[in-house]
Design a protein around this nucleic acid. Structure first.
Lengths: 179, 179
DNA sequence: ACCTACATGTAACCCGTTACATGATTTG
DNA sequence: CAAATCATGTAACGGGTTACATGTAGGT
């Protein structure tokens, strides 16, 4: 799924939005499994408008660029649903964290500790954020599923790191006395 | 980490290899957290040679392109270790599976079932493959960590899907009698 | 008769990111 | 006084993918 389709999905789910708002929606709701930057969103919306998949209404503002509020057309909705059905539901993960851990024996002990701490924090934060969203308001079964799925996987990673970190750091530096 | 660094890492870990072999190594060992295609590897190796980070010895073959066996130089090793230390250990995941599940209410029931089955199979396969590697021979603590980490997270996803799938499919099509 | 493994490579394309440009208002 | 928020956009760059080009040997 490219930025164009993601924008259509955001408009379908959140209703009429500006490019700026779509980015916010992304960060709040999709950030753990999709990304999109302004430089990808704005041109995408422009192209979608040309293709008739969205319409745009301009709201004038003083002292700020006019707001361009996009609206999903019926053709846009159909295009999005079709794109969902055509998708092979693939996933791609690139993890430099795992790569670094793979080569742990090549790393400075402090770098090793640093990336483990950082990963632990990151996973804990994700779990908290997703749990917060989960408990904050009602969701469709699909949204609920994705939230719980994200929580389950991130929690598993978090528990794993918490269980293994200390032991691992000691194994890598058996001579070190400082905790 | 770009393909160049990944190639250096592969040479460090697996020893002298051809581009073809590096791709195989990737698929067997890194596939759940990094990818690299031939069209990325071959030019990367050529550039690495120019930069003196690898050397290349050609082994003539009849009826096949000559094998180009690459060897990591000391400068290459240093460059790789340095790259590891400079890395912020970031992770990026794009999951169309989660996106589709998010919009589950927009999907045909059979598409929904299809992607859930597919994801279940994929996670189960990954767990099996990683477990197989884990039990097949000795590893450094770092490798062991990455294998167990991968198993833990994929197993969590797998268990989640197994627990929720049936219930979820029934919820999405309450009128459907066929299991 | 066709697919897979072996073995290397290039060219075109796609598309996303980084950085830049502009600029007021609110918050710390 | 600096930083974040609001608000839109472009240009250059980077780098990976798809498809193509070439060709043998062995398995189904």
């Amino acid at each position: 799924m490219h930025t164009k389709e993601l924008c259509l999905g955001a408009l379908l789910f959140f209703g009429d939005s500006t490019g700026y708002e779509i980015k916010q929606h992304f960060e709040r709701t999709f950030s753990h499994f999709q990304t999109a930057s302004y430089a990808a969103i704005y041109p995408a919306l422009a192209r979608l408008e040309k293709e008739g998949l969205v319409t745009c209404r301009v709201e004038a503002q003083q002292k700020r660029p006019d707001k361009k509020i996009y609206h999903l057309t019926e053709a846009g909705r159909r295009h999005f649903i079709e794109a969902l059905h055509k998708s092979d539901a693939a996933e791609s993960c690139r993890s430099d964290f795992i790569l670094l851990m793979f080569f742990a024996d090549q790393l400075d002990p402090q770098k090793l500790r640093e990336i483990l701490d950082q990963q632990e924090t990151k996973l804990a934060t994700t779990v908290e954020v997703l749990s917060g969203i989960r408990d904050s308001y009602d969701h469709s079964p699909g949204q609920r599923f994705t939230l719980d799925y994200g929580i389950a996987m991130n929690e598993a990673g978090l528990n794993f790191i918490r269980k293994r970190k200390k032991e691992f750091l000691e194994m890598e530096r058996p001579d070190d006395q400082n905790q």
